[in-house]
């Protein structure tokens, strides 16, 4: 399978990578990759280890700059100087538990870095009650049940923590969220809830990229499947046009199809 199977891009893409190449010395981690993600769409990035998924995420997040090619976000070519720059535009990368402080409660996590304050004699004072009210409302609207938002995050399940991150992202006006192996450490029930969370985020018109090894999850949640192999984009199709076989073939190359579940 040497040719790239792609379908024509639809207009109004939120994020576009255009002919992006990333070289680390002599090694090309990404070669001439073009990829678009629209608002209200879940795209699954698939591929073996070293296929280029992580590099693509690093470019989207602004952790690295591509050697050539460009990144267009909301129709404007962007050069992110740092992850903060991409974040300010509404791009969020969610790694497992990396953005959660276990030692503080849900409210403190939800408002991390954006605390509501009032001034008392010039001293900034946290508006705890207001923050609690908003957190409770957003978590409830997001369909996440927690016993109390005053509970420390360490007492929550992995799925609930992920829900905090997603709800937080939605609330603060995020536009594109990248979830890196979101279900790696979760049980079956929690995966189900996680998938639900992602659907809810998509239904609010936000774009979601999930990076996963698990074809099963990808087929369950993604509207489009994108496969990387050896730094090249080798498949980019609607999930409905794909079968497990074609996708696993794309992942592994010309080898025999891998049966998955």
């Amino acid at each position: 399978m040497s040719s790239t199977e792609t379908e024509p891009k639809h207009g109004g893409d939120l994020l576009q990578l255009e002919n992006v190449t990333m070289r680390y010395g002599a090694i090309a981690a990404l070669q001439d990759v073009s990829l678009g993600v629209a608002a209200g769409e879940v795209v699954a990035l698939l591929g073996d280890n070293g296929a280029g998924k992580s590099t693509a995420i690093k470019i989207i997040s602004g952790s690295v700059k591509p050697t050539s090619g460009r990144l267009v976000f909301e129709g404007i070519p962007r050069e992110f100087e740092s992850p903060r720059a991409s974040k300010e535009l509404g791009i969020e990368i969610v790694y497992q538990d990396l953005s959660i402080c276990m030692n503080v409660d849900v409210v403190a996590n939800f408002f991390m870095g954006r605390e509501l304050v009032k001034r008392v004699l010039g001293v900034p004072v946290l508006r705890e009650r207001e923050m609690q009210r908003i957190t409770e409302k957003v978590m409830a609207d997001g369909g996440t049940k927690v016993k109390s938002v005053r509970q420390n995050a360490e007492h929550l399940s992995g799925g609930q923590r992920q829900a905090i991150e997603l709800n937080r992202f939605v609330y603060w006006g995020g536009k594109l969220v990248v979830l890196d192996e979101p279900f790696a450490a979760l049980g079956i029930e929690q995966v189900r809830r996680g998938l639900e969370n992602i659907r809810r985020v998509r239904d609010q018109g936000l774009a979601v990229i999930i990076v996963t090894h698990n074809l099963h999850h990808a087929f369950q949640i993604a509207d489009r499947l994108v496969v990387f192999r050896q730094g090249r984009l080798v498949l980019d199709k609607s999930t409905s046009d794909c079968t497990h076989e074609t996708v696993s073939q794309a992942i592994t190359g010309d080898g025999p199809p891998v049966q998955i579940q």
Binding site: L98, S99, C101, N103, M112, R114, P124
Partner: peptide
Amino acid sequence: TKTPFGRYVYLVGGNPVAPFRAGI
């Protein structure tokens, strides 16, 4: 307990990566 700075002290002590990513 009542100011953002105090909150940050706890956040940074708990997991410095998270507040860093949150722009603190």
